[in-house]
Amino acid sequence: MKKSLFLVTVSAVALLSGSAVAGTLDEVKARGKLNCGVSSGTAGFSAPDAKGVWQGFDVAFCRAVAAAVLGDPMEVEFVPTTGQTRFTALASGEIDVLSRATTWTFSRDTDLKLTFAGTNFYDGQAFMVKKELGVSSAKDLNGATVCIQSGTTTELNLAEYFRINKMSYEPVPVDSSAEGERQYQAGACDVYTSDGSNLASVRASFKNPPDHVILPEIISKEPLGPIVRQGDEQWADIVHWTQNALFAAEELGVTKANVDQLADGSDNPEISRLLGREGDLGKMLGLDADWARRAIAAGGNYGEIFAGNLGDQTPIRLERGLNALWTKGGLMYAQPFR
């Protein structure tokens, strides 16, 4: 009896450790749902709407991946993460992809064993203050109390910026963007610092946005993008090329409205390859031929996603700026589909 119990234990150990080796793609397919880590509520990037459906720029990207892999953009389980829990959630396998305005840095890429699947938003750290304070430059912030999200690159940039400008400050660490907003509005800090896009989103949610100014200084480069675990090249490729498909779709004029029509026939061979009419790009990726078509149909191309969540028509009113296509003076550039 003892022997059989021992054997059961040994085989259970073997089974459990064996299951950890399977690829993320197979896991996601078997599960039928994509687990996507997002921020716990930032208007325009990821927040549940009145009906409880997650909406936003980061969310739309996860939906595109789910559409490409599983065929249904709604088959996503959104896992809210904080600045401090996001990498642990990814490393532990709780989420398959982290789409949470995370900055691509050297040490995160190498030391934290993350793989960045590309940049889908070029941002920079800025400061927001109340207009009544009469501050017009970040250089005037000596002695200020600054609310900052704990565990972010902004925390390090802030320390560095004040140090090289020989200014002092009092950090008030907060756990989430929502807590930062609350503290800032209550006046527990003079300044709220975060990525410029995040500040725009926060300001848009205030009762009277013009009462707050975002200072002109951009103190850092913040290339944001989706992340996967290091070591699963196939999954990294899928996430990377889904994102590229959205860029390419904007460049080629493929939109949510015309994607089905173009998939049935197009004069442009790159569109045909992208949408699976020619070649077998989908198969090379381990998916079917229609993967990119579904990804684009989920929320539109990159431009449509940007306009729908962050653009002029939304309360956040961000300009494309660096995030325009390379053909329009921006940095968004898809590697060729060939």
Partner: peptide, 8 residues
């Protein structure tokens, strides 16, 4: 918190 987050 922060140390774990920055160093992984």
């Amino acid at each position: 918190g922060i140390t774990i987050n920055q160093t992984g």
